[in-house]
Amino acid sequence: MPELSPTVIRAAQIFDAPFAAPLIQETIGAIGRALTGTTSDGDAAHVIAEFFPLRGHRLSFTNTLIAERGGRPVGLLVAYPGELAVMLDQPFREHRRSLGLPPTVDSEGLPGELYLDTLAVTAGARGQGVGSALLEAAPDLARRAGVRRLGLLVEDGNPAVGLYARHGFTPAGERVVAGGRFMHLTRDLE
């Protein structure tokens, strides 16, 4: 078996939109369709790609880390302070309103936590430590944001639950977002 290149974590750049948008949508599914006011994953990914290079919203490149192997992107983490969630969702509310849709967006992050909005790894890189490398970068982001807790939502049956448990996340309740039921997991930091 060939040796894997090391995983390098870097801040996302505007040029990462073509990689990031479809991977984000593949991961968030119904939430992405609700945010973008679309009915297909392809259309949602297109809208996310248009939003990604812009600042001031939840799925911005400014809130995203990219994992690379051998100079190629293989994963990403979108994270932001939970107390900013309502503000960061405002551009999506305005987008929905521009489409003639109700400006309803379920904000996910909670005050006091760095909310891990999206953790995604390409199919070919899953099970190779990329998700762990991204999760290991999260505590530093939390400290820089002045919070001491990580939080995320995960659907029942998502195999990533085991990964989150190995990284110290524990159940903290249930939430309903975009019509789906999610387990809220948190991890307190030292």
Rank of each mutant, 00 (worst) to 15 (best):
M183K: 12
D140W: 03
D89R: 03
L99D: 02
T27A: 15
F92Q: 03
G131P: 11
D106P: 06
E190G: 12
S5V: 03
G70R: 05
H184G: 00
L65N: 00
N158F: 01
R93W: 02
A120F: 02
A125T: 04
E94A: 14
V74W: 08
L65V: 09
L119R: 04
P22Q: 01
L114K: 07
V177N: 07
P73V: 08
A45F: 02
P139S: 08
R10W: 07
E83M: 08
A125K: 06
G151V: 07
M87N: 07
S98E: 04
S5T: 10
F15R: 14
E190V: 11
A137I: 05
G173Y: 08
L119Y: 03
S107G: 09
D89P: 03
L114G: 09
R149I: 05
L114E: 07
N158I: 01
R187M: 12
L35Y: 01
A138R: 08
T62H: 12
L153T: 12
H57F: 05
T39N: 09
L99R: 13
R72M: 11
A45C: 10
L101R: 09
A17M: 03
G71D: 09
F169Y: 15
V154L: 13
L4C: 03
R93A: 14
G173Q: 10
A12N: 02
A34C: 05
L150M: 10
A142G: 13
E3I: 12
V8L: 12
